[in-house]
Amino acid sequence: MGFQNRRDFFKTSLLLTAGITGISSKKNKAASLDGPSENRMGVLVDTTVCIGCRSCEWACKTTHGLPTKPIDSYLDRSVYDKKRRPDEHALTVVNEYDNPNNPLLPTDVKVQCMHCEEPACVSACIVGAFTKHPEGAVTWDTDKCIGCRYCMVACPFQVPSFEYSKAVQPKIMKCDFCFERTKEGKLPACVEVCPTEALTYGNRNELIEIAKQRIKRQPDKYYNHILGEAEIGGTSWLYLAGQDFGKLDFPKLGRDPAPGVTEAIQHGIFSYFIPPIALFALLGSVMWINRSKNNGEEK
């Protein structure tokens, strides 16, 4: 391979990369401007209605083929003694908190992936194993995943978990919004099984309207906030509660999408490939100065 060819290769590859980066950064910007589509689905979790029966936990495990005890064992309320997090064995869990308004009716809160409108995990995944579907679900592709676990670090709700116990083909585990079931026109398993319909599945915009109506009609019962309506750019799963969400272990999050900062830096560094070119130009010029110095010394 001659010197001339090598230079040509660099030239073309440089042009190509610049072109691709330019296009992809444009795409990313367009996606965040459009916002969620009109027919995006979601689930409204009304924690004031949840009775903490944990049927959803059972239904989730059964649907996703995870090992589970029989449903009758879920009546045991001693699990509420400590707070649990979703993990590789349970994609959703219910925790119980004291209710300052009525000590006899504790607040039960189901926890699972929130299916962000602008998911940090999708942004953080370096191989594109995560997908945000137009219907709302954020899913994970086992064939693409390389197990870097960046998604776990990126998630503002700390939801994705990793099958550390498996040596061969460990998976990232998280709620997939019952993507397969909803594709067939079925409801998510947890929504279908909930005895009190604390979980309502429907169009996200419609759910926000319903949540607003509930707060308006019973201002004494509800804390005046829909969690997930605006947090980190919005989430497909929305929550209503009778008390401050901070007391229910929800992280305090701003309105800006979680990937916003990281993407701004990353896309800033590579935008139109100017910073790398500038860097290489700087290094090149240093080299050139040094070479001319050397040449002078040699002379």
């Binding site: 079925k186 279908e192 429907g202």
Partner: peptide
């Protein structure tokens, strides 16, 4: 449970 008007709970949920 699966229905068009989701503003009211379904019958089972209403009872419960």
């Amino acid at each position: 449970r699966k229905r068009t008007d989701i503003s009211k709970p379904d019958l089972m949920a209403a009872y419960h």
